[in-house]
Design a protein around this nucleic acid. Sequence first.
RNA 1: GGACAGAUGGCAGAGCGGUUGAAUGCACCGGUCUUGAAAACCGGCAUGGGUUUAUAGCCCAUCCAGGGUUCGAAUCCCUGUCUGUCCGCCA
Length: 438
Amino acid sequence: MHDIKYIREYPEDFDVAMARRGMGAQSSALLQMDGDRRAVQTQLQELQAKRNDESKKIGMIKKDGGDANDAMASVARMKDEMSALEERERTLMNSLSQHLASLPNIMDSDVPDGADENENVEIHTWGEPKNPNGANKMPEHFEIGEALGMMDFETAAKMSGSRFVLLTGALARLERALAQFFLNTHTDEHGYTEASPPLIVRDNAVFGTGQLPKFAEDLFRIPESSVTLENKVESSRWLIPTSEVPLTNIVAESIVEENSLPRRYTAFTPCFRSEAGSAGRDTRGMLRQHQFYKVEMVSITKPEDSEAEHERMLKCAETVLKKLKIPFRTVLLCSGDTGFGARKTYDIEAWLPGQGAYREISSCSNCGDFQARRMNARFKLEGDKHTTFLHTLNGSGVAVGRALIAVVENYYDPVDGGVYVPEVLKPYMGGLEKIVKS
RNA sequence: GGACAGAUGGCAGAGCGGUUGAAUGCACCGGUCUUGAAAACCGGCAUGGGUUUAUAGCCCAUCCAGGGUUCGAAUCCCUGUCUGUCCGCCA
């Protein structure tokens, strides 16, 4: 994990921005830390310059066969002071970086204030929810799936524990059909480049997207250790919690060509989450699993383009739900519900007749330059001497497991307990019209 | 898993422990020449940081990463990462 590029002038409202995140004032402490660091650095650099001069002299004297003892003694005198300064600089830089790494992203000014998800703001709705008030008792997806004999939680628990599911037959195929449909739509119609990324990543990748160091407990860790002569070195790799991680890290540590922007990637991958701390929530069914499939969209843009790209991405996600004819609503997350790395987030919530509620099926976030700073991802404007941090965005397009739930509940036929196949999925289901108990 | 070899600027590719941020070629940008183009010739062409009103100058750092030896490291030593080749195993 490298040092995060820090801000030199904190904007007046930086402390206000942090307060919206429930954090105390930061700017004066940061400026102080940075000032200290720079003072030490300047001192050190002056010494280094002197040392370099002396060393060059020694080189020249020795070349001519002269006596360089005076110059060597002079350098020797600087040594202690230099190593002390180096040590101090390292310490100061480390604490500054660590501090910066722990700070959340600054939210966009149009993110509404609010404590939690109850204060998110509805932007719009689409479609006619079946059973809008939950007046009629309608079955939930797990009741439908279990009755069909194609959704088996017990068998999955036997081999893997809780929060896993075994799909079989037409429901297993439905999952694959959804993924295919999403991917094809995003690549063929929305201009995304399909990627098939690694599912296991290193520390720095997860740090770059912001899940580390703060949210390590939400991830599945693969411990690794290598034994060296002196000691045992512990390290880790991580199962990706979302393909946002590998897709965004495509541009990590690089300076991309301006004319290659915006870059848009989509991938269909499993996602792994420990779900630590969510004990007791959504325990029934496959709404909240340790492992689920998701089609993800990631965009890399210039700063001035990220807002428009965010709206575009949201439309791409909404489009697949419209094509599936799943009623949904779109909400703008309030300050209390906006994630650590996001500047602004829209959630799309699909209507689930069995629950009589809208439930999250997609989350589209503009991260601004937050992730780019962490992973040092830049581009260079034509004619500009310096590089500029990119903006990164990610969105589910959409969660496959939850889309399956939505299809099962919205296309349920109470007459025979079957599930109609949505029109757009039929080509992927071998023309099957309806999933019924075999 | 075992045994070797390697990692240098956008690319290719030099580099004895000493004024090397780094030869040379290609690519790219600007100019001269030309009716225009090509060729030829001339010039420019990394990133981060410090200082500074300055994207002027000066300075520091960076030749995969982190340590070390040394007055001085791209060059020597150690560790890690990655790449290549061979062997073993394997979807």
